[in-house]
Nucleic acid binder design. Sequence first.
DNA 1: ATTCGCTTCAAACGAGCGTTTGAATTTCAA
DNA 2: TTGAAATTCAAACGCTCGTTTGAAGCGAAT
Lengths: 215, 215
Amino acid sequence: MSNLEQVRVASRSAETTRAALIKAATSVFAEYGYDGGSVRLITQRAMANQAAVNYHFGGKDGLYREVLIAATLAFEENAFLDPEELDALSPEDALRRYLHQFLLPLVKRDRVSRFLRIFAWESVRPSEVFSAFIANSPPRIFRLAERVVRRFLPQDASAETVTFAMLWLAQQPMFFVRDAERLAQPPFSLKFDEDALERLVDTLAGLSLRGLAGV
Amino acid sequence: MSNLEQVRVASRSAETTRAALIKAATSVFAEYGYDGGSVRLITQRAMANQAAVNYHFGGKDGLYREVLIAATLAFEENAFLDPEELDALSPEDALRRYLHQFLLPLVKRDRVSRFLRIFAWESVRPSEVFSAFIANSPPRIFRLAERVVRRFLPQDASAETVTFAMLWLAQQPMFFVRDAERLAQPPFSLKFDEDALERLVDTLAGLSLRGLAGV
DNA sequence: ATTCGCTTCAAACGAGCGTTTGAATTTCAA
DNA sequence: TTGAAATTCAAACGCTCGTTTGAAGCGAAT
């Protein structure tokens, strides 16, 4: 019991640096992706020593794994876009809600938005860490997209068609979230305030829903 | 005149390595993107010395610029999806043709496909070279997408709406081209032969044209 | 045959990366 | 207070990257 006590208390200050590292890593990876985010920048933002990453997490990949776990927990617990919530809506509203949730990072800079940005990075070129992480359970993002898409497709749609449509839908908000900074520059110069976000959701939902022909 | 002769003949062997470097760079950048493609791999494939890149092109960026020029020329000269050709078609056929052309790299491994792959990479995270390169004239890919989209949108559509829709359309084939190898792996396991390509074009065109609601 | 300019080459440079090292420091039970 | 374990720290290691260097090779004109 003195043993337990020792471990718990000793890890208290360590827990501080661990938490600081995870927080800093979340923002760095959201900004630059896994490959682009350097350990030096992370430890600098966390005001920790470079070696701390390897000491506490065994390496950069271990730290990233911890971030992914935190992201997964945040999505699961936070009731961020419940699957059942989606089913309760009409297909059209479900689609709109889906797009809106995943485009929120355009105007918000909170923790969940950073997690979404990380997933947006991974949707481009998944790191080995991420691939191994989702190997067991496919990420909620894909499951949600599939759920939304299935509402629209006929029951007898082939698995391939469902996959095509799911990827098609999942990819749409990712692009805008990932490249928000670039789209803010010329020649596009898209600044996203809340109104612009609503218009983007409207446009994407309109395109997806009614199709180009119907606009 | 003896001077000219000398220059011409002397540069003949140099022209060989230049061409080999550009060709190798095209395939390497198509595979790994600009940042991910290393000079060492390029010179290795071109069977040239590492220093050759700097000698002939002033650096990795100069070589890449040359590849981009070659790509632009290939698109312009090759009559690859002429704007006027698009206008001659119905909006629906123009959309289908657009998607088909840009998804061709899924089944073809020719020169134009490699250029398309490079543009797919740049659509994710543009290199500084690329940004500077397109600063003067926006790339044909975007102009084509805008042209297709305009056929569907009302005349009085706002510039923002047109931009949203254009990005939305341009992004769709890019994703599949860029991530073809990944999509071939589990859990997706999408192998693209010519039939699968046709089905993908059908699905995307259907989604875009009639919208999810109409499928 | 010699010279000169263009091209190639092996080697090294310097910077950034993730990681390792070993000593210094802190922490806390005894 | 003491001693051992946990944690922090500055420094360096080993690697890859794009680039530079200076000598060697080469072809054509003198």
